[in-house]
Design a protein around this nucleic acid. Sequence first.
RNA 1: GGGGCUGUAGCUCAGUAGGAUAGAGCAACGGUUUCCUAAACCGUAGGUCGUGGGUUCGAAUCCCUCCAGUCCCGCCA
Length: 598
Amino acid sequence: MILIFNKLTKFFEDSILSYLKLNNKSEEFDKVRENILVASTKEEFGDFQSNVSLILSKICKKNPKVIASEILKLIRANDDITNMVEDLEIAGPGFINIKLKKNIFINELILNYKSERLNVPKIEKEKKIIIDFSSPNIAKEMHVGHLRSTIIGDSLAKIFEFRGFKVLRINHVGDWGTQFGMLISHLKDVYPDALKSTENINLGDLVEFYKSSKKRFDNDINFQEKARQEVINLQQGNAESISAWKLLCNQSRKEFNNIYNILNIKIEERGESFYNKYLKNIVQELESKNIIVEDQKAKCVFLEGMKNKEGKPLPLIIQKKDGGFNYATTDLAALKYRFNKAPNGDGAYRIIYVTDQGQSNHFSAVFQVAEKAQWIPKNCQVTHVPFGLVQGVDGKKLKTREGETIRLKDLLNESIKRAENDLKLRLEKENRKENKDFIENTSKIIGISAVKYADLSQNRITNYQFSFDKMLALNGNTAPYLLYTVVRIAGIKRKNNFKEDEINLDKILFNEIQEWRLIKKLLKFDEIIISAENELMPNRICNYLYEICQIFNRFYDQLSILKAEKNIKQSRLLLCYITEKTLKLSLNILGIETLERM
RNA sequence: GGGGCUGUAGCUCAGUAGGAUAGAGCAACGGUUUCCUAAACCGUAGGUCGUGGGUUCGAAUCCCUCCAGUCCCGCCA
């Protein structure tokens, strides 16, 4: 309804401006401009409301109700407005409530019906956005900590793609650093053949491999020395070390890809190692710009507005005292590369980092340094999108009963398993027979969507309690409830023998409150998408979806389609169809697959 | 000590570019099925929006105080 809103706002502005002129107050226009028209807060107040009278009350030194009635006179004389408006009234302390003509909505509804993208505006010029998300560490297993980043990042990517941006999804995997010294040394000892063969051998459980090398590293001084030497070998590009490193990366990549496949998420791997060759330059450039200060033998940039425990300025360490680089250096190199124009960069106009809140300080430090170094081009922006922890129902960080980190793989499998058990129980109860493929596919979609949706529907900034029981519940703001609504509509279409091209758009009519509630909600889709994009909050879409489903299910419950008279039936079927389209499009943007039957 | 985030119904959470009587789900209690998947729908009850101040015609929302929880703060990422 963005177009309608903008149009009406423009017309109201004209009237308000003439009102101000009449009162010799035209200079106050900017002050009231933003309050000229807003969506009504309640259904009974109409579609839009204007709150200007309340603000003008002080300016014009008059009672707001008097102002409202004076404004109303001007508005009623404005044909542009009366063409759109069915009813205008003054309410409460001086609100002007506006009810639009029904055909305005119907026309909009038909436009949406004909549009693949429900008339959501597309940006005019294609711009590139980089979304940095997921980012697990090589030789470690993905766990719940990666879940939010992965799911939220993917959905943000989809929102931007839908809006017409060119999105580059980057998996900034931890594929470099001192831990590789110990991993490679251990690999050489335990699997000496691995490096000679061109085939990847199976390292079995990488997590176990990581643990055992860590254990050795912590207890064996000789091994520590070997590991340190191995880091140097690796950095110097020693062939054998590199191939061991590649082996570890490949092995991890396979595991990661399994997860991304289950989640149906696409992401391009470009790990920390990619930026190795740029690190030296970063330090040099910061030095030449006199931004770096040497402190306790480390090269630092001191940050403004941040203090350490002693109250002194906080440094961001760019080069360690041993000459090594750390993650801040890599992040700066990555940032610079991503903004740089091709061929030495991505030419992005915006970079978005989806990581947990704990890294907020780190990113604000990195951004501050990047700004000082002028690596963020004009009209470009960097954004950290933080999110809260995943907690157990006890309110503590999610762990297994034994206190171990929960593997993402296990978590997803459990959700699917539970969905399958629920499904089988229901089939039994309803005496339904379904084949194995149906059960497998349905359980998978329900199980995965439940996990994704539980995460996305939460305001990302707060911690959230992970509960299989709640996310798989058939009631409430859950994936199964939404999927069920989609299934219901599919059922209606089957039973009513719905054919899109048989709908006569000239004869549609709506007389029931349930229909109108649904129509008005459906028409808000564009605003919701834009708001989710602006705030980087997919949960706005989730709330909206849930509201649509609630309204639809009331509509379904209270009005019959099958038995309705022809034109009414057609009209209701059209509504079902547009509801389905809205649900599917939204769910798609959230990365959630739908079903025809469940 | 500094900084971030959070605090809304018994529980889990929506709602912050200020708007009229603060919303859902779960749990509790009551009701609805000759009909398109009842996995649904309807109703009842439940609130000092952490505290105290300020700005405003109007504050859960903006500003300040304090309280509580949580995370981060030099060579890990």
